[in-house]
Design a protein around this nucleic acid. Structure first.
Lengths: 199, 199
DNA sequence: CCGAATATTTGACACGGTGTCAATAATTTG
DNA sequence: CAAATTATTGACACCGTGTCAAATATTCGG
């Protein structure tokens, strides 16, 4: 067999960077091929379609991101953990020049727009899976905090609330381009969930 | 002058319905022209471009939606008002078969993907304006509630929190297609903002 | 009532993007 | 070294956006 002339993971990274920077709609396979130094046909041969390539790049990124979130949630008081969680989330939206927005939400909203087509359903599932895993991480962190007396509510409900807030922040970031406001909203959320006193 | 052969507002309604149902990306001007019974060229002549047409249709819808929200926020106890607000929001996401998602958020995320191009910036501004106006409505409702002793926190911060939650719900609706869960999250948010007792 | 002015409609065209396919080229294995 | 297998390449079809000139319909002034 003839071997590939490119590295699979390299292309996924290049593609995700493009998708993140310019959106799925705003990125053509010609763009990615040019950046990766190969022909469009090779991408089709290796990945099947633009959306399949996006999906692979997305899942690769999601795995890394999940690890980073886990790390952020893993040290200090419950308040410190949640603060680190929101900090990482917001920093992620604001990375790049200009800020690229939420890498996991933008793709879904773009692809999820035209549903029932097969691949879009796969994108939806990938996103739903990531959200479920993030929610589980936050829930476990809250449960552990509750066991130490740092939290008194329902961990599952609070985790869902927190994750919903991160998705809302992802949308508002696109609308307002106002990082201090995002941070204020996040701080307020932590206060609300933990009780303003800080316990 | 030769008069138009179609009604401006009719076309905006037809277009917005298509955009809402199939997404901006998934709707071609041929689709809209077919539904409206005219030629593609007439749409370009009347509206300039696909995105300009979307924008006009969007703003027309947003004005109606804002009135509906205002009405929902206008009667009963503060808890009842907020409940009606979230109910309307969620019902909006879930309307249509299959549910069409949030009419105001989807378009932004699709168009906001490729930024710095002029018209996308207009879409961002339109969305930001709508969000600001909704936030103001909620803030005023909370302020009035505070004056009646139904709420004890910071109305501006709480309003921003609530609106952020609605955007998060708009995203999660696409991911999970689980209406009861959306309602649970909304109820939990109201409890958190007003204090679980209900005062 | 007629013609000029003006805006709308129509259809052809260019362009770019996705995706397919057959032909070609480069390895590995027998 | 030859056969088999896979990757690459370039041409093609198709669809969507957007532009333009020609044709058409209406209004207004004389």
């Amino acid at each position: 067999m003839r071997p590939r002339e490119f590295d699979h993971d390299d292309v996924l990274r290049i593609a995700f960077d493009q998708f993140w920077r310019n959106g799925v709609r705003g990125t053509s396979l010609s763009d990615i091929a040019r950046d990766a130094g190969l022909q469009r046909g090779s991408l089709y041969n290796a990945f099947g379609s633009k959306e399949a390539l996006f999906l692979e790049a997305y899942e690769r990124y999601a795995a890394d991101y999940l690890l980073a979130l886990q790390k952020a949630l893993g040290a200090g008081s419950l308040r410190k953990r949640l603060t680190a969680f929101f900090d990482l989330t917001i920093m992620n939206f604001r990375s790049g020049t200009p800020p690229r927005g939420c890498p996991t939400t933008r793709g879904l909203m773009e692809l999820g727009a035209a549903e029932g087509e097969g691949l879009d359903e796969d994108a939806r599932k990938a996103f739903a899976g990531l959200m479920a895993r993030i929610t589980a991480l936050v829930r476990d962190t809250l449960s552990a905090g509750a066991a130490r007396g740092e939290f008194g509510g329902d961990p599952a409900a609070a985790a869902l609330h927190i994750v919903t807030m991160t998705r809302g922040l992802a949308v508002l970031e696109r609308a307002f381009d106002d990082e201090p406001q995002l941070r204020k909203i996040a701080a307020h959320t932590i206060d609300l969930v933990l009780g303003k006193s800080g316990r």
